[in-house]
Computed example of a mutant assay.
Amino acid sequence: MRNCSCALAVLLTVLVTTAFAGETAPEPTDYRTENYRAPVPATLKGAKVVTTEETIALWKDKSAVFVDVLPRDPKPANLPAGTIWREKVREDIPGSIWLANVGYGIINKETEAYFRKGLKSRLGDDTKRKVLFYCMANCWMSWNAAKRAVEWGYKSVLWYPLGTDGWTAAKQPTQKNEPF
């Protein structure tokens, strides 16, 4: 059984690495507003793209604020009476703040206020502190969120395009998290 789990970990690492190292998209000038689970760019103007190794180092030395932007699935409307609804459990990088749904290409004023409040809760008014955005591999949500932070004047924006897929493939710890 141990060999099986090792082989599975190797396979997952290969899949995650291939997902990112393979096809990439050109960097757009504006936000991505559809097809959020697709190849992402290798760059983000105004931000630094970080590898799994760099992300681990930042996490270990606590030198960056980690922001998970994975969307949270809403409870479906019109569930039949008596249907049990269980929200999906989110396991992310320990110590992260989960700002759900802020990575869409178009966000309303309420979501923008929630996003800004979440960043302020961890960064205060320090726009020079490192802030790392992530989601999952090939997910435009983190790219959009990091781009928005750059446009809002944050100076040390980091983007981890492999997200929790890359993190878990590297056998790093995760924790259950709830949105801010």
Rank of each mutant, 00 (worst) to 15 (best):
T33C: 08
A57N: 07
T43M: 02
K75R: 15
L119S: 08
N108M: 02
T33M: 05
T111N: 06
L162W: 07
A146Y: 09
V50K: 01
G166T: 14
T168Q: 14
W152L: 14
T174L: 04
F66A: 04
E91G: 10
G163Y: 11
C4K: 15
D30Q: 15
W59N: 03
T127M: 04
L15W: 07
R90V: 13
D125P: 05
P26A: 11
W59M: 08
V40W: 04
L12C: 11
T164V: 14
T13G: 10
G166W: 11
W152C: 01
V65M: 07
S63V: 07
N144F: 01
R148I: 09
G46F: 05
A170C: 05
L162T: 15
K171E: 15
P39S: 07
L99E: 05
Y31R: 06
T168Y: 08
P41C: 06
A77E: 15
E53M: 01
V49Y: 11
W98A: 02
G95Y: 02
L12Q: 11
T111P: 01
V65K: 08
T33Y: 02
T24H: 14
V67S: 11
P28R: 12
A64M: 11
A47Q: 03
V67I: 15
E23G: 00
A170M: 09
W59Q: 08
I93G: 00
R72V: 13
P39A: 08
Q175Y: 03
T174S: 05
T18F: 11
T164P: 01
K75C: 09
A64W: 09
V69A: 06
I56C: 06
R129H: 03
R90S: 12
L158P: 02
S63K: 12
Y160P: 05
T24C: 11
V40C: 09
T43R: 14
A64F: 12
C139H: 07
W143M: 00
R122A: 07
C4G: 11
K48Q: 14
N138H: 10
Q175E: 15
C4R: 15
P28K: 11
L123Y: 02
G118T: 06
P28H: 07
Y114D: 11
K147H: 14
R72G: 04
I93C: 05
T51N: 03
T174G: 02
T29Y: 02
E91P: 00
L44T: 13
K75V: 13
A100N: 12
C139M: 06
A145D: 09
Y154R: 00
P173A: 06
F20G: 10
T29K: 13
W59K: 09
K75T: 11
V14W: 12
A19E: 14
K176A: 14
V69F: 05
K147E: 07
A137Y: 00
I106E: 15
K45S: 14
